[in-house]
Write a protein that binds this DNA or RNA. Structure first.
Length: 278
DNA sequence: TGGCAGGGGTTGA
DNA sequence: TCAACCCCTGCC
């Protein structure tokens, strides 16, 4: 079994099951089975070593996927004065940002609206089972475009099937639309993704954060709104409108605000007493 | 066991 | 600005 010595803490449960990716399951305690770049793999951490069972997967790809090369502490230096982030980081020091495959990430989040993590995971599993071939790979845009809306509804996508089918069709014809130049600012990249059906401000930013390594993408959903109100504007009835969180987060957290959000979000959602249904 | 409320958004009017 | 869109889960 290949192994990699870890130089940073790595918490596979919060990283893989926390809502960044939806193709992972804890198949036995501490052991997580899923896919990386089309390769099925089981991961586990033992004695500060990352172990995996698929020799076709290089250490480099794993490091890349789990952002093990990233110095999170340095990136989060501008947030040192924040009253909550140090607590969140301390609670989950091994939570890493993922670099998920852009297409799978986009498709997952198109399926995510008004869905809970467990349901999104079920949809991912059904899409793989119905359209992913013998390897159960995540189906390509071509495959989902060919399947069409009606077949996608069989995967319990509901109204989201229409959006996913339409986006798959566009990307099957124009795959280059997922290639986002590094020189584009995140705002421009988000607008670009929002041209696709079913992609709004929340989803574009999730994809930029979890698949493109845009650490300044700051997705705002009901949980984040709840968290920000509760922690930063306690007792205030009306605070900021959805669009205003962008500027506020920039001021509060700086250029790594997406990473700050990832930690705060996970900590807040899993804290005792949170209404979390996973 | 069955009914009900509500959930990690986007679209189009 | 707001209703409509589907379906699943938890709760009573």
């Amino acid at each position: 079994m290949p192994a990699l010595q870890l130089s940073v803490p790595l918490d596979l449960a919060s990283t893989l099951l926390g809502g960044q990716s939806f193709c992972w399951n804890e198949t036995s305690p501490g052991s997580f089975t899923g896919w990386i770049q089309g390769m099925p793999v089981t991961l586990m951490v033992k004695h500060r070593q990352l172990l995996w069972n698929n020799p076709l997967l290089s250490p480099f790809r794993l490091e890349q996927y789990l952002s093990l090369d990233l110095d999170l502490e340095s990136l989060l230096v501008p947030c040192r004065q924040d009253p909550w982030l140090p607590r969140a980081r301390e609670a989950f020091p091994g939570l890493r940002p993922l670099r998920e495959d852009p297409w799978e990430c986009l498709a997952n989040f198109i399926c995510s609206s008004l869905k809970q993590i467990v349901q999104i995971r079920q949809i991912n599993e059904r899409l793989r089972r119905f359209f992913g071939g013998p390897q159960r790979n995540f189906p390509s845009p071509q495959r989902l475009a060919k399947a069409g809306e009606k077949a996608l509804r069989q995967c319990q996508l509901g109204y989201r099937a229409k959006h996913l089918a339409a986006t798959a069709k566009i990307l099957a014809q124009e795959p280059q639309r997922l290639q986002i130049p590094d020189r584009w600012p995140t705002e421009q990249a988000a607008e670009h993704l929002e041209q696709l059906p079913g992609v709004g401000p929340k989803i574009s930013r999730c994809v930029l954060l979890y698949a493109y390594g845009r650490w300044d993408a700051f997705p705002v959903d009901v949980w984040v709104t709840r968290l920000l109100h509760h922690l930063y504007f306690p007792g205030r009835r009306r605070t900021l409108r959805p669009g205003d969180w962008e500027a506020w987060s920039q001021q509060q957290f700086g250029p790594a605000r997406g990473l700050a959000q990832l930690s705060l979000f996970h900590w807040y959602r899993t804290r005792p007493g949170a209404r979390s249904r996973r």
